[in-house]
Amino acid sequence: MSALLSIKNMTHYFGGLRAVSNFSYDIPQGTIYGLIGPNGSGKTTTFNLITGIYTPTEGKIFFQDKEITGMKPYKIVQTGVARTFQNLRIFSNLTALDNIRIARHFNTRSGLVSSVLRLPSFMNEERQVKKESRELLDLMHLSSRANELAKNLPYGELRRLEIARALATKPKLLLLDEPAAGMNPKEVEELMSLILRIRNEFKVTVFLIEHHMQVVMGICEYLKVIDFGETIAEGLPEAVGKDPKVLEAYLGKRGA
């Protein structure tokens, strides 16, 4: 079977700077794959390229065997790719519930006119969206926060809210940009089991960027390591963890 997401020889320049270089990655359905590398190595840029925020200078991206290179971000989301952000991008003056409901919007069908007239079809759909959104909040242990403004939630809950919002788009592929950033060890444990649960219950494929070695080694089935936009290693987590080039990139000149 071919991969769910397939990136072929992707290169991206910012001005004269090569941020991502000849990057290829095939992610099979149902897996949890990881991308690691030191700060500034081009990880988030890779996500931005997959989600259409940038168009790659060279190379192609396929999702479910269809090319998505250069498509608009919202279209890419609608084909089934959702993501979270390294620096949270929450709708902070809206409630937790509304944050989720917004992500359901493109799946709704009621037009502007039926919304204004409050037709039964519209009311039913609103009820359905609300129910599904509440279920997602439940899953993330956020149901008590449904009507709270997002800006009043603590950091850990915002991280979960953002994952819930991404799931609300009913993705087939979920991109997580440093989901464990800023979490304490207990929260990291919970996050890991959450990611595994999401993969199993929602049948989504997970592609994550992470610094946190515990998370990467704990849940990723396959890893790719990049530095300065170049792939320096890839393989199973145990093997990658022992690769001297990886150790140098992390612990070498610019090391911890």
Binding site: P73, V77, F85, I90, S92, I102, A103, E126, V129, A166
Partner: peptide, 21 residues
């Protein structure tokens, strides 16, 4: 309505709105 919430999401964070479709 769902349309109004879509408009609100643009005010709140346009990029994030784009990336929830």
């Amino acid at each position: 309505s769902s349309h109004g919430r879509a408009m609100l999401s643009i005010r709140e964070n346009e990029l994030a709105a784009d990336l929830v479709g």
